[in-house]
Structures are given as structure tokens and as C-alpha cells.
């Protein structure tokens, strides 16, 4: 699976304003609503479900990356977005470091395979230090979009 298969381009945010875990999750879900990928009435339920998942164990998987996610019946395909926090967000990460890169995923309840393949893609790309550094330094959403496209293209070659 590629980034372009699940990242809503219009919902990418290069400089999230929020400084807290719930704040940034709310901002990213709002971005998906604004991009028309999530129904406005479902927003609260989705934020709550993502926070409930975080209570089970932080999705801050280390190296400044978090993958907050949930299943939700209101989506019929996997939707996701990317946000960058230049300042960093306290996320109770597995390695204790603040989070700068966030990949938020909302998937239909009956498609665990798609969720796994999205996680596979994210984690494989994030092993590349250069990719992480360039994402963190992105000036705007278009920069991020280009980096994701580049990563997708290299995935074809390798």
C-alpha cells in the first residue's frame, strides 16, 4: 500500500497549532472533515475512539513518530492524513521523546488487513532517517505531499 492510497492530500497539515495529544488529534480529524473525508457529525465520536485507543498504550512508536488510529463504522475505506509539529508534542511515546510526525488513520471495522498494510508502509518509510528529517523540515503541505509521492515512487523501484 502507498501513501497515496490512504492520505487525504487536502487534509495534510505542516504546522499544527495544538500542543497537546488530544489537541493535535482533534486538529487532524477536523482536517479530514474539512477535506470531506469524514462526516462532520462523526467527528466527536472518532476523536473519542482514538483517545480511547491511546489509553490502551501510546501510538507514539518512537523516532518522533505517532500513528493515532481507530476503526470507525462511518468510513467505508481507510482514510488518513499527515501532520507535522515543529515544536513537538508530548505523546507518552514508547521512547519518551516528543512527537513531530503524525499519521492518523481511520479504518472500516471489517478491514484489519488494510490497516496493517498502511502501518507497514508508514513504518518501512520511517526507517529512512532522511525521509523523517525532510518531513520534519517541510515548509508547507505541498512539500509533505511531494515527499510522500517520492516515497511512493521509490517503493515501486525497490
Amino acid at each position: 500500500m502507498k501513501f497515496s492510497d490512504f492520505v487525504a492530500t487536502d487534509a495534510i497539515r505542516a504546522h499544527v497549532a495544538a500542543g497537546s495529544k488530544e489537541g493535535v488529534i482533534r486538529e487532524m480529524v477536523q482536517a479530514l472533515v474539512d477535506a470531506g473525508r469524514i462526516a462532520a457529525g462523526e467527528q466527536e465520536g472518532i476523536v473519542k475512539a482514538i483517545m480511547k485507543r491511546e489509553d490502551l498504550g501510546s501510538t507514539g512508536i518512537g523516532r518522533g513518530v505517532a500513528v493515532p488510529h481507530t476503526k470507525h463504522p462511518s468510513v467505508d475505506r481507510l482514510v488518513g492524513t499527515v501532520a507535522v509539529s515543529p515544536a513537538g508534542i508530548e505523546f507518552e511515546s514508547l521512547d519518551g521523546e516528543p512527537v513531530h510526525l503524525l499519521f492518523l488513520l481511520v479504518s472500516p471495522p471489517d478491514r484489519p488487513g488494510d490497516h496493517l498494510r498502511a502501518l507497514e508502509n508508514i513504518s518501512r518509510q520511517l526507517r529512512d532517517d532522511t525521509f523523517c528529517r525532510l518531513l520534519k523540515a517541510a515548509k508547507g503541505p505541498v512539500d509533505i505531499q511531494h515527499l510522500l509521492e517520492e516515497a511512493d515512487a521509490q517503493g515501486v523501484a525497490s
Binding site: G113, E120, I122, R124
Partner: peptide, 12 residues
Amino acid sequence: SILEVLTLAAEA
């Protein structure tokens, strides 16, 4: 490494 383990995308 959690990142490495996730790249397996191992389904049920």
C-alpha cells in the same frame, strides 16, 4: 524494533 516488526504487516 517496533518499526521493524510493523513492516511485516503480518495478518491473522
